[in-house]
Design a protein around this nucleic acid. Structure first.
Lengths: 208, 208
DNA sequence: CGATCAACTGGACTCGTGGTACAGTAGGTC
DNA sequence: GACCTACTGTACCACGAGTCCAGTTGATCG
């Protein structure tokens, strides 16, 4: 009965991580106090240190949680794109459309990326956390690069293209789009960038 | 003789701002202590508060300095692009090439954008600073949008394009490219994204 | 029924940091 | 000789992060 017994701990831990994530996205890691997290969750400081050995441990747990969530969402979106169209290019284009739609319907008023927040404060963290961050980006690169390779084989572009940069462009536009969206308080910026990315992909592999 | 006399103050202030900028890009604003800044510059705490009334005043001054520098660099790059080619599209494409080259030759090992750093810590700042940040993005949008409007008039694209998003894409790729470059420790990522942006612009207005 | 363990509570303590206050001073300027 | 700029020096306070450790509660297991 591991599922039902003693599960209160995992739930409290999850609530701490969720509170920490929204606070870090709003104020940064250093400005996020343990006191505010325990106040939000309703436990004491000692309770916090029962779950995390120190603040660095919290940071690492936040990243692991974030990366896992990120991976799951992306897997789901592009798997559905593939299901809707057998062709690698058109399946990818459908996936990008779904992706843009999802980004436009995010519930948060000011969505953000934890990895981006951490990368502008990376001197606060140890090597382990920075490596987790790099792994996350490489996962995006690999994921998109594999698709582009398959697509480029079936639809050879007429001129040389930097497929790696094209794969990175997805993550680049997401990170940049989140930043611009936050700065201007405009949640349409990010999905529109993804739509442009989709246009770009199509124009490279399907010239008019 | 305002230029030569009493100029030591402005110089110290500038050194404080420069030290603050590199510290903030490495650790974030909250984790940047006044003590480390005065140690780096070689003055006392009282000296710091002679130049800035409090930390918020420092933040505002940092943003103003950053935006001004940003504006000057961009003005210079694209003015040179225009000088090298009269045509609005080709002048812009030359400017983008110069821009990519400049971004590839940045002296810092881990360049970053102060505005991006601030936007992931915006709850630390007052409305005034957030507005400065938004103005900075809008300046990029306006700058690129004006060019794209002129180009679209001379080279009408065959299908509808979201010119605003295309203008924002420049800043989006710079912000995102800086983040990916930092995460992977790869300074080539950003210039390659700008090259792709250039390819995209060309393919929209000059279909093969 | 008693032992065990997860999930905490409570309290006391240290240290760094932001920020204030204020008095003093070196050196160039008018 | 008065004045101003650009500081130094010292003392002080409040707050919050983070550490440590001892104790407690309530469910579970043999």
């Amino acid at each position: 009965m591991l599922e039902t017994t003693h599960r209160k701990g995992a739930e409290t831990r999850e609530r701490l991580l969720a509170a920490a994530e929204s606070a870090v996205l709003a104020k940064g890691f250093a400005a996020t106090s343990i006191d505010e997290l325990i106040a939000a969750v309703g436990i004491t400081k000692s309770g916090f240190f029962y779950h995390f050995k120190d603040k660095a441990d919290l940071a690492k747990s936040m990243m692991l949680r974030y990366l896992e969530h990120d991976r799951a969402v992306l897997d789901d979106i592009f798997r559905r794109g593939d299901e809707l169209n057998e062709d690698p290019l058109h399946g990818f284009l459908v996936g990008l459309k779904l992706f843009a739609e999802m980004l436009g319907n995010l519930p948060e008023a000011h969505p953000g990326c934890l990895a981006a927040s951490f990368c502008y404060q990376d001197q606060l963290f140890n090597r382990e956390i920075r490596e987790l961050n790099a792994e996350g980006v490489l996962a995006w690169r690999t994921r998109f690069r594999e698709r582009l390779d398959v697509i480029a084989f079936r639809y050879p572009p007429r001129s040389e293209v930097d497929l790696e940069a094209m794969a990175d462009m997805a993550a680049t536009l997401v990170e940049g789009g989140l930043i611009l969206g936050r700065m201007l308080g405009d949640v349409t910026i990010l999905p529109r960038q993804i739509v442009l990315y989709r246009d770009f992909i199509r124009s490279v592999f399907l010239p008019a």
